[in-house]
Simulated assay, not measured.
Amino acid sequence: MDVEVKPVGAEEAETVHAVVHAAFEARPALDPPAAALSETREELEGRLARHGGLLARVDGVPAGALVLDPVGTTMYLRRVGVVPAMQHHHVAQALIDAAVEAAEGYADLTVVAREELPATIAFWEHQGFREVRRDPPDVELRRPLRTAVHHAADADAMRALGRSVAGQLTAGDLIVLTGSLGAGKTTFTQGLGAGLGVRGAITSPTFVIARVHRSEVGGPALVHVDAYRLGGIDELDDLDLDTSLDEAVTVVEWGEGLAESLSESRLEVSIVRDDPDDVRSERRRVEITPVGPRWQAFSFRGLR
Rank of each mutant, 00 (worst) to 15 (best):
M1N: 08
M1K: 10
D2N: 14
E4R: 15
G9L: 11
E14M: 08
H21Y: 06
H21G: 01
A22C: 05
A23E: 03
A23K: 13
E25C: 04
R27Y: 12
D31Q: 15
P33W: 05
A35W: 11
L37F: 04
E39P: 02
E43Q: 15
L44Y: 12
E45F: 04
R47E: 15
H51D: 14
L55M: 10
L55T: 01
V58Q: 04
A63Y: 08
P70Y: 00
T74M: 12
M75P: 05
Y76F: 13
R78M: 14
L95W: 04
L95P: 07
I96H: 12
I96K: 00
D97M: 10
A98T: 02
A99S: 12
A102K: 04
A103G: 05
E104D: 09
G105V: 10
T110M: 13
V111T: 09
R114M: 06
P118E: 02
A119K: 13
A122E: 08
E125Q: 15
H126A: 14
L141H: 04
R142L: 12
R143D: 01
P144M: 01
P144R: 05
A148E: 14
H150F: 14
H151F: 13
A152L: 01
A153P: 00
A157D: 03
R163M: 05
V165C: 05
V165Y: 07
V165R: 12
A166Y: 09
Q168P: 08
A171T: 02
G172L: 07
L177V: 07
L177Y: 08
S180D: 15
G184A: 00
T186W: 13
G191K: 05
G193L: 04
A194M: 10
G197L: 10
R199V: 12
I202N: 06
T203S: 13
T206Q: 09
A210P: 02
R211P: 03
R211K: 15
V212Y: 01
V212W: 03
G218K: 04
A227D: 11
A227W: 13
A227Q: 15
L230S: 13
G231Y: 12
D238Y: 11
L239H: 06
D242W: 03
L245A: 02
D246R: 12
E247K: 06
T250L: 03
V251I: 10
V252F: 09
E256I: 09
E256D: 13
G257M: 07
L258M: 15
L258F: 13
E260L: 08
S261F: 05
L262A: 06
L267Y: 01
E268S: 08
S270N: 08
V272E: 15
V279S: 11
R285V: 15
V286L: 00
I288L: 11
P290Q: 03
A297D: 15
R304I: 10
R304A: 13
